[in-house]
Amino acid sequence: MQPQRTPSAEPGPQPGPQLEPEPVVFGAGALDQLLDAIRRRGFRLVGPVLKDGAICYDDIGSAADLPAGWTDEQAPGTYRLRRRDDGALFGYAVGPHSWKKYLFPPAARLLPPEPPPDEPFAFIGVRACELNAIAIQDRVFLGGRHPDPQYAGRRDGAFIVAVNCGQPGGTCFCASMGAGPRVTSGFDIALTELLTAGDAGHRFLAEAGTARGAEVLREVEVLPAGEADIGAARAVSEHAAASMGRVMPELDLRDLLTRNYDHPRWDDVAARCLSCANCTMVCPTCFCFSVEDTSGLSSGDPAGAPERHRSWDSCFTLDHSYLHGGPVRVSARSRYRQWLTHKLATWADQFGTPGCVGCGRCITWCPAGIDITEEVAAIAADS
């Protein structure tokens, strides 16, 4: 029996009921009208920018801050920016950042609790794989009996402008994980960037996913989408689905991995793995963290109030499995096996879906170029 591979997009604080109104189109020059309409509603705009030799997420003020005419080339252990021959604003795959850094920040004070941001976030340019990753983290932090107040305060009311992916990277495999490339739910507005010659030129097809998304679009100079526009948008997603750089084997991943704990491939990958934790740091769904308490004495200020801080951690660190005097997973073999088996198999036991959305970041940003689709295929070939 095949496991459910498509992450169920059921974010905790949904932006509102999903709508299915008629799509509209607007010229690329009107994108600032969209951003201004969102900002007027009190949102903090965050989107893709060129920074530190990569396409990262940061605060933006207008469409001029977006990476116009840039794309990325990705392969195992390789990431490079290069110029496009057009002015596409979202003509790249994904960079080292995920939206996790805003909803579940790398470091936060738990006690006394930090207040939520003054302005709710508006995420601009969220891909389908990333929407599914947000839905997974919603389930982790908000789905149990004890919702995480830090996460809830940052997630509450977030406005999401999704973008249907038109150019997957060389390490992407979201299509085989059922997580893309086309967005289906969890967004306020979904855009498809269309680049054609002639009078139509550079434009966006926009679909409202919620009532507030439709309200924003009413403040943009739009035209009803014609059949040619709808067909062009469909072609963008179809081309992306057919252009994935990687494919996850179509197998019962849980059964495969849980009955191969002693497979020799784990030794092979351990000989290459540096246990650097890059894969978990760039992963949009990993949620491991450590907690540290400090007091006035430890801070050097006897009068200082005690504090509790949380920071990202990784199952690749030796102390992550520390129990009763020592770590449980002392070898790189056991730590990599734990990560991959949890991500693709036992995660579903906890949360109902795999913990992987096929974004390919773990492959791109692994300095040893370890490819999880390749590792799964190697285990499957001997099983």
Rank of each mutant, 00 (worst) to 15 (best):
P67G: 11
A68G: 12
A68V: 07
A68I: 07
G69N: 12
G69H: 13
G69T: 11
W70S: 11
W70L: 11
W70A: 11
T71Y: 15
D72K: 06
E73H: 13
E73F: 13
E73D: 15
E73W: 14
Q74F: 04
Q74P: 09
Q74L: 12
A75W: 10
A75M: 07
P76D: 10
G77T: 09
G77F: 13
T78H: 15
T78L: 12
Y79R: 14
Y79T: 05
Y79I: 10
Y79C: 15
Y79Q: 15
R80I: 04
R80L: 13
R80A: 15
L81E: 13
L81C: 11
R82I: 07
R83P: 05
R83H: 09
R83L: 09
R83F: 09
D85E: 15
D85Y: 03
D86L: 01
D86V: 02
G87A: 02
A88I: 00
A88S: 04
A88D: 01
A88F: 02
A88G: 01
A88N: 00
L89T: 02
L89D: 02
L89Q: 01
L89Y: 00
F90C: 00
F90Q: 02
F90S: 02
G91Y: 12
Y92H: 14
A93G: 14
G95W: 08
G95P: 08
G95E: 12
P96E: 14
P96M: 12
H97V: 01
S98C: 06
S98Q: 04
S98W: 04
W99L: 04
K100L: 03
Y102M: 00
Y102P: 05
Y102Q: 01
L103V: 06
L103D: 04
F104K: 04
F104W: 04
F104A: 13
P105R: 07
P105W: 04
P106Q: 10
P106T: 05
A107F: 12
A108K: 08
A108C: 11
R109M: 11
R109S: 05
L110D: 06
L111M: 10
P112L: 00
P112A: 00
P113H: 02
